[in-house]
Simulated assay, not measured.
Amino acid sequence: MLMLYTPPPVDPKAPPVRVNLLSDTQTRPTPAMREAMARAEVGDEQVGDDPTTNALCERVADLLGKEAAVFMPSGTMCNVTATLVHCRPGDEILAHETAHIIAREGGAHAALGGFQVTQLPGPDGQFTPETFRKALHPRTRYQPSQTVVSVEQTANIGGGTIWKKAALDEIVAIAKQNGLATHMDGARLLNATVATGIAARDMTAGWDSAWIDFSKGLGAPIGGALAGSRDFIDAVWQWKQRLGGSMRQSGVCAAACIYALDHHVDRLADDHANARALARGLAQIAGIEVQEPETNLVFFKPDGAGVAGDKMVAALRQRGVMLAMMDGRIRACTHLDVTAAMIEETIGHVREIVRGA
């Protein structure tokens, strides 16, 4: 059974956090990013008059190889508005059983759109093209219309794994053969592009809608941008308005996202290197089971060392290190506010806790 993300309990007596591996959403805007925000030229986004937001949308559309893009307050709104456009009430979405749209969006797709999500199995947060093909059924009045297939790049609960380009292309081909739209939850898409060297527009080729998140590894305080055809984005805009996501002087936030695209993409490789270093160090501690990271997420279980996962998370928090339990494992997430020295400190604390056990 899928176990949702469990944040560490709030302990007013806990020491200050020195190493925050809870999530890449914990990043803080750098001084240079704040300066870019302060200098941003702004207007009214609702009437298309914010030049900085417009520039960001044009840039994301080009980055992802789409006709247009729209700036959103959150990645969840990118996913929800996309399915609200692709689907009609009663329609069926196909996605991996651990996908963000199932595990982390509060049932929004059912609550707001009346959609059901079919959960496709598969290791490491991914289903195979053959699993997708087998889940398809003939179009009859007895079953819901299957209208969209969604993938999450990278697969968060799967361990930050990267969907292979060949698998993505095959899923697109199967979807098109069967009349389904394709949607890519690209919250950490740029982690995948940096790790593989495959351009974002090549990774999203054939996908009807795709988006990137700026508030994770890219270090902006807020926002995502959803891209697709002009007609699709026009329809998304109506849902953005309905859901209260249409903003005014959003250029202040868009400026942070532009700064992130200029300065924080290539450095994602540093986060990947830190994740590998953490995994290597943890694997050298007897009894700890570690999933080899492909990007910036490290999942591990200390049960074999005689320490339950939740106990390890609590003990690390008392040492100023913050991690989280996710799907029965501990997740550590590296980002621009985590240094190589912090990784070594974390490994040292884990070693001490295991020794104590």
Rank of each mutant, 00 (worst) to 15 (best):
H183G: 14
A167M: 05
G186T: 10
V151E: 11
A181N: 12
A175S: 10
A175C: 08
L189S: 08
A195Y: 01
G158S: 11
T154A: 09
I174M: 08
M184K: 12
A181F: 14
E152M: 13
V151N: 15
A192L: 05
I162M: 02
Y142P: 01
A173F: 10
G159Y: 03
Q146K: 08
E170I: 06
E170T: 08
V148E: 04
I171G: 10
T193S: 13
T161Q: 00
V172W: 09
T140D: 01
W163C: 11
V194I: 14
D185S: 15
V151Q: 10
A181V: 10
A167T: 05
K165W: 01
G186N: 05
N191R: 13
L168E: 02
A175D: 05
G186H: 07
L189M: 13
I171R: 05
A195G: 04
P144I: 02
A195R: 02
G179I: 03
T196N: 02
G186P: 12
L180E: 01
A192Y: 04
G160A: 06
I162P: 03
I174P: 13
L190Y: 10
T161W: 00
G179F: 04
V172H: 06
T196R: 02
Y142C: 00
M184L: 15
D169K: 11
H183W: 14
L168A: 09
K165H: 01
N156F: 15
R188W: 10
S150E: 12
E152C: 13
S150N: 14
I171P: 14
S150I: 14
Q146C: 07
T140S: 03
E152D: 14
K164Q: 03
D185G: 15
I162A: 00
A195N: 01
N191A: 14
N178H: 14
E170S: 07
G179K: 03
V149F: 13
Q146S: 06
S145V: 09
L168D: 04
G159P: 10
Q143M: 03
G158V: 12
S145L: 06
G160S: 09
Q153R: 12
W163Q: 07
A181K: 13
G159L: 03
V149E: 07
T161F: 02
N178K: 05
T140G: 02
R141D: 00
P144T: 04
Y142E: 00
M184P: 11
N156I: 15
W163N: 09
A195C: 03
K164V: 01
N156R: 12
I157A: 07
T182C: 13
K165M: 00
I157E: 01
G159D: 01
H183P: 10
G160D: 03
L190T: 15
T196F: 04
K165V: 03
T147I: 02
G179C: 05
K176P: 11
A181R: 13
T140F: 02
E152A: 15
L180F: 05
A166I: 05
N156L: 15
V194G: 07
K176Y: 12
T147F: 02
T154C: 12
Q153M: 13
L168I: 09
N191T: 08
L189Y: 12
E170Q: 11
A187Y: 09
G158W: 06
L189P: 09
G179A: 04
E170Y: 06
K165S: 01
Q153S: 11
L189E: 04
Q146P: 07
I162E: 00
V148L: 10
